Computed example of a mutant assay.
Amino acid sequence: MSETDFNHEAIHTEQMKELLYIGFYILYLTEWVWHLVRLRNANAAYHAISFEREAYKHENDMEYLETRKMFNQYKTA
């Protein structure tokens, strides 16, 4: 696993902690289904999930987790 991949997954881990793990999975799946219906494309739906948008946007910033604000997945454009 590359450092970038590790950082991407570490961002997801922080998201999970904020939502007490089960909340993360419920919201992740709900968002994916919503975007799948809206976009009619599984790959596009995956990339539209707020959790993924945040993780992809900051995966190359190895210091991001030191300054990340809670629930930033909803603030990341």
Rank of each mutant, 00 (worst) to 15 (best):
H35K: 05
I26F: 14
N41V: 08
W34R: 12
D5R: 01
L19W: 04
A45D: 06
W34E: 00
N60I: 02
L20A: 13
L29G: 12
Y46H: 06
Q73C: 15
I49T: 10
N43W: 05
N72I: 05
W32D: 00
F71K: 10
F6H: 08
Y56M: 09
Q73L: 15
Q73N: 14
V37E: 00
V37G: 00
A45Q: 02
Y46E: 05
T30V: 14
S2F: 02
R38W: 04
M1K: 10
F6A: 09
N43D: 09
K57M: 10
L27E: 10
A42Q: 07
L20H: 14
H58Q: 13
T4R: 11
L65F: 03
T30M: 12
N41M: 06
L20Y: 12
Y21D: 06
R53F: 02
F6S: 10
T67M: 08
D61R: 02
M70N: 12
Q15R: 08
L27R: 11
L39G: 01
S50I: 08
Y25T: 02
E59S: 08
M62D: 00
L39I: 05
E52P: 02
N7D: 02
L36K: 08
K57D: 03
I11P: 07
I26G: 00
R53Q: 10
S50P: 02
M16K: 15
N60D: 09
L20Q: 07
L29D: 06
H35R: 10
T30S: 12
